[in-house]
Simulated assay, not measured.
Amino acid sequence: MADTEFRADADAPDLSLIICTLNEGVAIRGVIEEISDTLRGISHEIIVVDDNSADNTADEVMAVAAQRPNVRLHVRVGERGLSSAAIKGWDIAHGRYLGVMDGDGQHDPHAIRALAEMIMQGDKDLVCVSRYLGTTETGLSGIRDLGSKAATYATGLVLKVPLSDPMSGCFLMTRDYYLSARPKLTGIGFKILLDIAASAPKKPRFGEVKAALRQRQGGQSKLDLRVVADLGALLIEKATKGVLPARFVLFAGVGVTGVFVYAAVLIACHYLLKSSHGAPIYRYQYRLDDIISYSLAIWISMTWNFFLNNILTFRDKRLKGWRVFQALLGFYVACSLGALLSLALSMFMKDHLHIHWLVAGVSAALISSIWNYYGAKLLSWRDKK
């Protein structure tokens, strides 16, 4: 079904519920039918935003849509991530109230109906499902529950609203509240509620409904170390009021690992190539083994950073196949100025400022990282138009 832009007319549904999917073919049909039946009597539409699943997710959604005209499918190609998928869904939604839920069946439809009835009373801007109201079970395993509680505590330090479960993936909000937060949303990672609540300019009138997670009906958990990294980067962006963008924080984190790779290569080359090769250039004592060491360290660490950034920093735009090598060349070009700057600074600090060779190399690499970030965004992982 074709997507259209938002229209504020009499035919628009009250509620637009976004379901973000990636390989949820086993569960998605049952999830849509259950939530549709539970919301009977409430004017609503369901928009499934699918990240080009490799299974039969899209076919299952279209089969349901053939029987339920309030169901729409939007497939994204070359983009990944729950937060950005939810934002896309809300941008094309028609409803006065906007919500999101998972496509694996873990969110209780009855809790979502309770949220809908609560927000439609008109005195709330944001209503959420919470696993931490009261003392009943959360539905999470021990380790995941502990991690979620730790993340909840950390987010409490930067949020404008005291939500009991800012990690919740199921909530509803008014369109006005969404639009107020939209300009500052990062769209990175999976914790979209945190992104919304920390991006809105004012504290919302909010409410919560207690509900534990149900057994997953299909698919696999998307929680991994990359999700944790995304959360940490998002918290830093919001805590610094956008001075340090989340994606730059991730890029810088990758850069730190690249510094260790750089240092390791530099140390290895220093001892393997230690010699008196090379003649003085004018009055400077730049030796050939120094040039080889620094250049090799720059190239290897640059390559390391590219592949790790493709997996972590830009995973929502992750490149595959031949595009990886095309982008790698673009990354080399983008970082070439930074590499030359790093090389020149390394040699200058070592030979003229008499700074230790390792300190000189690492310091120069850090200085050049800012250019590398913006160059990489421009030539390797461009934003889609």
Rank of each mutant, 00 (worst) to 15 (best):
K222T: 15
E208I: 02
G232H: 08
I192W: 04
V227K: 01
V209A: 04
A233D: 02
K191V: 07
P245D: 02
G219W: 00
L225T: 13
D224E: 01
A197H: 02
L235A: 05
D195R: 03
K184V: 02
P201E: 07
F206K: 03
S199C: 07
K203F: 11
G207N: 07
Q220I: 13
T186L: 14
A198L: 05
P245F: 07
L194C: 12
L193W: 03
V209Y: 02
R214L: 14
R214V: 01
I236R: 00
G219C: 00
A197T: 05
V227I: 11
K210Y: 12
K191P: 08
L231K: 05
A212R: 13
V209G: 05
G207Q: 02
Q220W: 11
F190Q: 13
G242F: 07
A212V: 06
A197C: 03
A198I: 03
G207Y: 00
P204S: 09
A198N: 02
V243S: 10
T240W: 00
L193R: 01
G232C: 08
A233R: 09
G187F: 09
V228D: 00
G242K: 02
K202V: 15
S199G: 09
K222G: 14
V243F: 15
L231T: 04
A197F: 04
G242L: 07
E237D: 10
A198Q: 01
R226E: 09
P245Y: 00
A211C: 01
L225V: 13
K241L: 10
P204N: 09
G242Q: 06
G207S: 08
V228G: 11
K184T: 05
F190I: 12
A197W: 00
L234Q: 13
D230Y: 11
A211D: 04
F190P: 08
A198Y: 02
K202T: 15
R247K: 12
A211I: 05
I192H: 10
K191T: 11
K184D: 12
Q215K: 15
V227D: 01
V243Q: 13
G232E: 08
L193N: 05
L193H: 07
L231V: 04
E237L: 04
G242E: 06
A212K: 14
K203G: 06
L185A: 06
Q215S: 12
T240G: 04
I192T: 14
K210V: 11
L185G: 06
L193Q: 11
L193C: 08
R205G: 01
V228R: 03
P204Q: 04
A233T: 08
T240I: 03
V228P: 08
V243G: 04
P201C: 06
T240S: 12
L213Q: 11
K222F: 15
V227Y: 05
L194T: 15
A233M: 03
A200T: 03
L223S: 13
K241M: 10
A239P: 02
G242I: 10
D230P: 03
T186S: 15
K184Y: 12
L235I: 12
Q215V: 12
A200K: 09
K203L: 12
